[in-house]
Amino acid sequence: MFKAHHLLGIKDLDTEDIEHIFKTADNFKEVINRPIKKVPSLRDVTIVNLFFENSTRTRISFELAEKRLSADVLNFSASSSSVSKGETLIDTVRNILAMKVDMVVLRHPMAGAGVFLSRHISARIINAGDGTHEHPTQALLDAFSIREKLGTLKKVKVAIVGDILHSRVALSNILLLQKMGAEVMVCGPSTLIPKFINKLGVKVEQNLKKALQWCDAANMLRIQLERQDIRYFPSLREYSMQYGLNREIMNSVNKEILIMHPGPINRGVEITSDVADSPHSIILDQVENGVAIRMAVLYLLAGKKATS
């Protein structure tokens, strides 16, 4: 039984909820491979995609998931809205909800924006990324993709490589993978690894080759230059030499590793083209699974009777 009323972060989910989402996503993955890829489940549900931050993949993925479920979809981006005229988040959302909207998909640059909003409105909220805090649907689709390829998450070793400090993907992934019994290692320059991350029970490694030798799956994160107000490493070139995944280092490790990336890829920085496009890479599977996972989350949340 799916218990959550919102999806604000992985930390609110238990293993039963996560398994339920995965199982429902399995069904939706079959649905999106049918000749007619649409089901009428959310026919009477209106969903607004509130994006206060740029996004291509996540927004399209959510929009597609909503449309595949026959929901009515509104798209909102902060740059072309009254937010630039000084309207607050609550006012913006209340105005939209006054037009009878049932669910909100929220991306916001501030950590905790979803939690804050959930205290003020009754619509269901799905966090599509809040600052450097959480990005639950990304973590779900990453774990779902590993589970699909390896059959399980139990005892699977996952290395998350790159900019851990600014990454909401990293935090959500760590929480989710640990709940599902996987082992997690973070790898990156010490300046990009949060100080007390070992409190989360993850291994910390500064050497990429050692991390690759340890792991079954490597999730390569993008360097988030837009979130860096100071320099955390001397140059992109130097970062790429130390932490970039290339054919040479893959060959030297000499074992099968799933290569993942939440996108967008900076080719030649954290990953070279030949690795990103290699058979080990499941980057495009992640994108496909993203739609199925988001359909599952939307479906399970919309199915609950409104509380207020």
Binding site: M1, F2, H20, K23, T24, N27, E30, V31, V39, P40, S41, D44, V45, L69, Y299, L300, A302, G303, K304, K305
Partner: peptide
């Protein structure tokens, strides 16, 4: 064939039906 996503009583039931394989 699983019909869960095509039901007309979705959102009016207390317990959500769990989908099976198609």
């Amino acid at each position: 064939l699983d019909i869960t996503f095509f039901r007309d009583d979705f959102r009016s039931r207390e317990n959500m039906p769990v989908a099976s394989e198609t």
